[in-house]
C-alpha cells in the first residue's frame, strides 16, 4: 500500500539552465517529509513538529497530499489590504495567506532573472505588449508560443512587469506581489474575485466563526495561471492521483458489478 512516487516538476527557468525539482514522498509521516497542499509540485509543505507529538501537517502515504493540518496557520503572513465593494463583518477578520514567492522561487532564480537578464540592457525592455516568438521560457509555460490562458487575447506583459520580473502588474502598471495574485486575476475575473472575497469561491481553513482567523488560499495555489483550463480538459484543476478506494465489504471479491456500462438490456 505504501509506495514512493517521484514527481518531477519543472521550476523557474532562467537563461542559464533548466532545473527540475523532483519530490520524493516518504513512507510515513515524519519530520522533514515533503508533501503538497493543492497543486502537486507547486504547493509544497515540509513536515515539522509544531507541538510535542504534533506535526504541522499529516500527509497521505499513497499520494503525498496533505490530509490534515495540525496548525492551519503554519508559515502564513497577513493577506494585506483587499478592496471590497461592500462593507461586511468578514472583511475585518484576521486573514492570512501562505506566501507564494518562496514556492515560486524555490531555486532562487527569480531575482537572478531580473538582475542578470531582464535588466533593461541584456534584454531590452519591450516597447509594446505585442506577442512575439519566445526563444526562452517554454519550460515555464508549456506551449508558450501559443499561451493557453486568454486564448490569444492576453500576453506575458499583461500580467508580468516588463521592468521587474519579480512582480506582477495591475492595469496601471503598479506592481503586485506574487503573494497577492488575487489582485492580478481580479483585473479580468471580477465576479470570481467577489465570490472569493465572500468565501464561496476557493478555499479557506482555520476558524469558520465570524471574526475567527482564517487562512485564505490564493488563486495560484489551486490554478495554473498559465493554463487555467488545463488544455482541452477545461477543468480548472490539474489531475491528481486519487486516494485508495474504500475497503470492499467482506465477501465481495471485487467491484466489477458497479463497472457495468449502462445500455440496452440493463
Amino acid at each position: 500500500m505504501f509506495k514512493n512516487r517521484i514527481v518531477g516538476s519543472t521550476a523557474a527557468i532562467c537563461m542559464l539552465a533548466v532545473f527540475s525539482t523532483p519530490t520524493v514522498y516518504g513512507e510515513a509521516n515524519q519530520v522533514g517529509n515533503e508533501c503538497f497542499e493543492s497543486r502537486d509540485g507547486k504547493t509544497q509543505v515540509t513536515q515539522k513538529e509544531v507541538a510535542p507529538g504534533t506535526l504541522n501537517v499529516r500527509c497521505s502515504p499513497t499520494t503525498g497530499g496533505v490530509l490534515w493540518w495540525g496548525d492551519p496557520f503554519d508559515g502564513t503572513i497577513p493577506m494585506g489590504d483587499m478592496p471590497a465593494s461592500v462593507d461586511a463583518d468578514y472583511l475585518h477578520e484576521e486573514a492570512v495567506v501562505k506566501p507564494r514567492e518562496p514556492e515560486i522561487d524555490r531555486n532562487k532564480l527569480l531575482t537572478v532573472c531580473t538582475v542578470a537578464c531582464h535588466n533593461g540592457e541584456y534584454v531590452p525592455v519591450p516597447q509594446s505588449k505585442e506577442p512575439r516568438p519566445l526563444a526562452m521560457h517554454q519550460d515555464i509555460v508549456p506551449d508558450s508560443m501559443k499561451l493557453a490562458h486568454g486564448k490569444g487575447a492576453i500576453w506575458c506583459l499583461d500580467c508580468h512587469s516588463k521592468t521587474n520580473r519579480t512582480k506582477l502588474i495591475d492595469h496601471f502598471d503598479n506592481e503586485i506581489s506574487f503573494n497577492q495574485p488575487q489582485k492580478l486575476c481580479g483585473k479580468c475575473h471580477g465576479q470570481v474575485l467577489r465570490r472569493w472575497r465572500e468565501g464561496i469561491h476557493g478555499k479557506r481553513i482555520g476558524m469558520w466563526d465570524k471574526g475567527g482567523k482564517k487562512r485564505w488560499w490564493v488563486c495560484t495555489e489551486c490554478h495554473n495561471p498559465h493554463d487555467v483550463e488545463q488544455g482541452n480538459r477545461q477543468s480548472g484543476f490539474a489531475q491528481l492521483y486519487p486516494e485508495p478506494a474504500p475497503m470492499l465489504p467482506k465477501g465481495m471479491p471485487n467491484a466489477d458489478h458497479e463497472r457495468v456500462k449502462h445500455g440496452p438490456g440493463h
Binding site: 493543492s38 496533505v66 490534515w68 492551519p72 478555499k203 481553513i205 482555520g206 466563526d209
Partner: peptide, 22 residues
C-alpha cells in the same frame, strides 16, 4: 466546529469544493 474551527474535510479539499458555516 463547536470550537470555531472548520471540519477536516473542508480544510483538506484541494479544490475548495466544501463549505461550512452558520
Amino acid at each position: 466546529t463547536r470550537k470555531g474551527r472548520w471540519t477536516a474535510c473542508v480544510e483538506v479539499c484541494p479544490v475548495g469544493a466544501r463549505k461550512l458555516g452558520n
